[in-house]
Simulated assay, not measured.
Amino acid sequence: MKNTLTLRLAQLALLVAVFVLWHVLTTPGLVPPFLFADDRQAAFFFGEPVKIFGRIWAWFVTNADIYQHLGVTLLETVLAFGIGTVLGLACGMWLALSPLAAAICDPYIKALNSMPRVILAPIFAVWFGLGVASKVALGVTLVFFIVFFNVYQGVKEVSPIVLANARMLGASPRQLLRHVYLPSAMSWVFSSLHTSVGLAFVGAVVGEYLGSARGVGYLILQAEGAFDINTVMAGILVLTVFALLLDMLVGQVERRLMKWQPKSGETEKL
């Protein structure tokens, strides 16, 4: 408990130090003269933390006008994350257990994975319109392959000895799936989910950039057009915080479902 508290305090101290340094380097009169010819350039290019937090305060408290935009972005992100995860889990499990289907689909999966999927955003906008659906579709393509390849590899890594023993004990295909394949793939799945959280946000925000009238990405795009770096940075901070919150939620689910797995410290003691 004490070590955890010390760690959290150290992390908080590092965060505060970063913002203090940022404030010093972007405040006119405090900027070292050798960095910029004009001490106002730093604030123009990197924003000022005080004004950034002021914008966030106005969004959430004073004006309270971000909730509709944030709700849209979070809806797109959660839908993309959920659908991409389910599809990746199902397809990865299916192809890992079906060698013939995997061999047939292999070149097509590799081709789709090698495609820079962000370029699909305009196509999805044409297919699904400028609403939530096109952003979700883009996010799904980003999340799907991360989960798919991890699940596929996780199932392939099942111990042959465990598998043979389960079959010798008379386990049915359904029991093998539930008690052997899924537990083996779970650690791989959650590893991919932590990466997929950020990619789901990328899909939502990039889609909003290319065509939308709502969302945090739309607010950032509008601020960029007006060279309002403080609002841009405020939007980035808001997205980062909510991405971390979603990642923490995934971590909570992981700890609950992976109780059977020994922690690293426990493994060393054994």
Rank of each mutant, 00 (worst) to 15 (best):
G54Y: 08
I56C: 15
W57I: 00
A58F: 11
W59M: 11
F60M: 06
V61I: 14
Y67M: 11
Y67A: 14
Y67N: 13
Q68D: 12
Q68L: 13
L70P: 09
G71H: 05
V72Q: 13
V72W: 07
L75V: 03
L75T: 15
T77F: 14
F81S: 02
G82V: 15
G82M: 08
G84F: 13
T85A: 15
T85L: 11
L87A: 11
L87F: 10
L89Q: 13
A90M: 15
G92S: 09
M93V: 05
W94F: 14
L95T: 07
A96S: 14
S98E: 12
S98A: 11
L100F: 09
A101V: 01
A102I: 06
C105E: 02
P107R: 07
Y108C: 05
Y108Q: 10
I109N: 05
I109M: 04
I109D: 05
A111C: 07
A111D: 08
L112E: 09
L112M: 12
S114F: 02
S114N: 10
R117W: 09
V118I: 15
I119V: 10
L120W: 01
A121R: 00
I123F: 11
F124I: 09
F124Y: 05
F124H: 04
V126S: 07
W127H: 02
G129A: 09
G131Q: 02
G131V: 04
V136I: 05
V136R: 01
L138A: 02
L138Y: 00
F144E: 02
F144Q: 06
F145D: 08
V147T: 01
V147H: 01
N150E: 04
G154P: 03
G154I: 01
K156N: 08
E157W: 07
S159L: 01
L163R: 04
L163T: 05
A164Q: 08
N165S: 15
M168A: 12
L169I: 08
L169A: 10
A171H: 14
P173I: 10
P173K: 02
L177H: 04
H179C: 04
V180I: 14
V180G: 02
Y181C: 01
L182H: 06
L182N: 06
P183Q: 10
P183S: 05
